[in-house]
Write a protein that binds this DNA or RNA. Structure first.
Lengths: 223, 223
DNA sequence: GAAGAATTTGTCCGGATGGTCAGAAGCTCG
DNA sequence: CGAGCTTCTGACCATCCGGACAAATTCTTC
């Protein structure tokens, strides 16, 4: 005879319809997600262990598993939370306002993201590296559509003669690549420069160079 | 009583001084390294299993371990082999010849590398992502020195007025980032475009955009 | 063609790790 | 203050995986 009063954990309970989150739940889930982000981004999905995450979150493994029943659930949760933030700056880029300041602003935001949220960036690239098995569908829908939308904006700027003729999608790729580089390849950057982007001097040089070269590369000549 | 005629495996034998490699050794080590590259680049060090690599190499796990006694040895071997190739194009860039064709050539080579050897590129980034534990020392010596050398070349070009004033090291980072993006973020590129760089049209658009924007971004105006 | 070395395999081991489970402890609210 | 729910834990299990080993098989060489 099984123990009748036992529950199935907060996730399942909520999945069944009860929508309340207790104070303890909210706190712990937050702590767990933060810990998971750090560990997953550093060691990858397989490299991370549940014990490790639990320890960093300051709780026992079974207790962590009480909140997220499978390692995989936890990973997905962190990933989803991250993707939203990752995409946010692109959404800010609007057709009003001139291309120069819009694009410069976007690039700067991405660089700041790399500096301030390297874990998120690395978590994301780690997933993509593995072929994006957990968010393939999201990439093919959400990501694709926002890229297409913004590519449209850029294309209109080009038509108006405000930018030289470049492939908008590849331009976006270039922006992503050059900005994320400072988070994703942190170890490499650090080996060569002796410091990472968190160093103000490095950040300055990086943003001047990236913004300088990219903008010069796409703005019409008018010197 | 142990089996007296048993050997210690080819690697150890060679490490002890005997320099011969049998035909079988050469063939198998090659097969193993190829298999290891594919598996490691796809799943990362921890994600890859020795069984998996052995299977792909068409041999049993103990037999693979006969050639590389530890998973870690195998990983290091693949990584070293890869790093050399990864750095090669940069070495080709020489101070003679004009900056435009030298840099354009370099960028094109890196793009071709991304297209033709994506596994190598991904293996490398996977390692860097994890903080480059296995090749930290190599990065801090070999990589650092070649980057500094080439930064010097670029700096001289700038002094001669052949390039605009940019930070050479960050420029090199930009080139690496934009070119490797097509290998490392393959899954993302594919989600957005529906095809990867192996597609000639995509490759064309990518190289036109990357080379176009970067070169326009650093060459002095003369329109 | 046989001695001896190189290569290959089946089997096994121990540690790590994801996940389970029964119950203990803590909260909350009447 | 105590019933009933939520939260937490120690102990445990099954599986996966790197690696060891002894012996079988295949090469090489004389």
């Amino acid at each position: 005879m099984s123990y009748e009063t036992a529950t199935d954990g907060p996730d399942l309970a909520r999945a069944r319809g009860s929508k309340k989150r207790t104070r303890i739940q909210a706190e712990n889930e937050e702590r767990i997600l933060d810990a998971a982000l750090e560990v997953f981004s550093r060691y990858g999905f397989r490299g991370a262990t549940v014990d490790q995450i639990a320890e960093r979150a300051g709780m026992s493994k079974p207790n962590l598993l009480y909140y997220f029943r499978r390692k995989h659930d936890l990973y997905t949760a962190v990933l989803t939370r991250t993707l939203d933030m990752w995409l946010a700056p692109l959404g800010d880029m609007t057709e009003d306002g001139d291309p120069e300041s819009e694009l410069t602003g976007y690039i700067r935001q991405k660089l700041e993201q790399s500096r301030d949220f390297p874990h998120e960036s690395r978590l994301f690239i780690g997933e993509v590296l593995l072929g994006a098995p957990h968010l393939d569908s999201v990439l093919k829908t959400d990501l694709k559509s926002i890229v297409e939308e913004k590519a449209g904006v850029i294309r209109r700027w080009i038509e108006e003669g405000k930018l030289i003729d470049v492939d908008p999608v590849h331009l976006i790729f270039m922006i992503w690549a050059t900005t994320q580089h400072y988070a994703d390849f942190d170890a490499q950057v650090r080996s060569v420069l002796g410091r990472g982007v968190e160093d103000p001097t490095t950040f300055r040089a990086a943003s001047d160079t990236v913004i300088g070269v990219l903008m010069r590369g796409i703005l019409p000549t008018r010197d």
